[in-house]
Design a protein around this nucleic acid. Structure first.
Lengths: 264, 264
DNA sequence: TAGTGGTCTAGACCACCGA
DNA sequence: CGGTGGTCTAGACCACTAA
């Protein structure tokens, strides 16, 4: 019986690290990067670069552990990282294989600015308002602050490729520093929030639609009655404190929300 | 110095399983349910029931392990489950505590039917079309089938509380069985897909908006030009095969997408 | 029956935090 | 400094799959 070289339904050929002739270990024990993460990154790179194509098998965990001179739990943790990201699928009694479809990344907490940047459109921002004011009842409730506490109110117009895309209105607790108008015109709000040491942890958002009123039509270069996407989002830090409340409208003719989901 | 009873900033009082006087173990080693999952579910229930309120601390992992007569890795795995769901936050050198905000669940692959059911609205479905037809070029491309292969084409009207909410159009490979009109009017599509043994693994979806044309206006009891939410979704199984392509429109006046995100 | 992933143990050392 | 979570090891037994 001849050896089958490329039958992806069968168990894997011995797993071979690509940049490592003869099975040398792509693992640096002196690095501060955890071993499982080094392996996970290596495998992720191998998969996304096409070196391990969809349908190919990872070597079994015990063998990988032996070749990498790691324990099986460590290798297993690396593989789990890939499973969580939807890159591979475990099949008990068979093995672990690279999934066919590359659903790039699960949904994440990103700003419109980052989205536009990533997709190659040139983002720009005009700050319409950047004021500190006492919190009205509704804002105070959403941000869990006392009524009258200082809140930062932002009103921005976001452009992509010279075209207006969205009007972004945000409220933040007045304790957040560093939101100069200049900084806001140069980068995204989330990056600024993170850069003052706040770690975003969770969010609840609502996406809806409505038609443009006269104000919005003028700001966004649309006609009255044009369809708009609305997104309201409250973002929380790891302590459960509300960090930001955003109420945004997007031109439906120029923008939509794209989301990649992986079920866990 | 008096003992502080309820200072949530300090290290935890000894962790006590609630339904277990004196530290008895809520763990059944004879159960087929994994030990880590029994613990995880117990803790999740304790948190969501308010028994472990936001801000309270989980006992340290070593102590919990000792009290439950489990190893620390097993307890750790249970805690990790809660971390992944955003219910607790680990703080190195300090401990693990319940987060303040209850962001209920991370976004998941659910059907509109399930959404309506969960939120207590009465879902109902009218099947406008349920046919098998040869795949046109676009459908064939999306589902990765040869042109002309049989595909199931669904057209449904979804009601909530007697009001039309959305028009749902789907294409599925003709190999999917069990989609009788009666079944489709009684439950959600995803449940039917799962019930024939297909496991949904990933999806990519796009949410946009537009205004209603005459057809849509009539079907959805809206006027021409009313704002509609659109959602296109391609769902894949664990092998990366496309399972379903949906192109849906929702009345923006009656529906919006709510999503809870947890950053990992 | 042999090989796979799924679970679990009983240790170990480290980095970080607060006192 | 002691206590916490973060990482890692070297085993073990089990359930499931395929041949």
């Amino acid at each position: 019986m001849p050896a089958v070289l490329d039958d992806q339904r069968r168990t894997p050929p011995a797993w071979r690290p690509a940049a490592a002739p003869g099975g040398v270990i792509p693992v640096d024990r002196a690095s501060p990067v955890p071993l499982y993460f080094q392996v996970a990154q290596y495998l992720e790179e191998a998969i996304e670069s096409g070196l391990m194509p969809p349908g190919s098998w990872l070597g079994n965990e015990g063998q990988m552990a032996a070749e990498l001179r790691l324990s099986r739990p460590t290798v297993r943790r690396a593989v789990q990282y890939l499973v969580d990201r939807g890159l591979v699928v475990r099949q008990r009694g068979i093995g672990t294989k690279v999934v066919q479809t590359q659903v790039k990344r699960p949904i994440e907490l990103s700003s419109l600015y980052d989205d536009l940047n990533r997709t190659g459109r040139r983002p720009a921002t005009t700050v319409l308002a950047n004021t500190v004011e006492p919190a009205a009842a509704q804002v105070a409730h959403v941000l869990n602050l006392p009524v009258g506490a200082p809140v930062i109110a932002l009103d921005r117009l976001r452009y992509a490729g010279g075209e207006p895309i969205a009007r972004l209105r945000n409220y933040l607790p007045g304790t957040v520093a560093g939101l100069t108008t200049q900084a806001l015109e140069e980068t995204g709000l989330y990056l600024l929030i993170r850069s003052v040491g706040i770690r975003l942890h969770a969010a609840v958002q609502t996406i809806g639609a409505r038609t443009a009123d006269a104000d919005e039509a003028q700001l966004l270069h649309e006609s009255v009655g044009a369809p708009l996407l609305t997104m309201q989002r409250i973002t929380y830090d790891e302590h459960g404190n509300a960090v930001e409340w955003g109420r945004h409208v997007y031109r439906a003719s120029r923008y939509c929300f794209e989301q990649n989901l992986v079920t866990h």
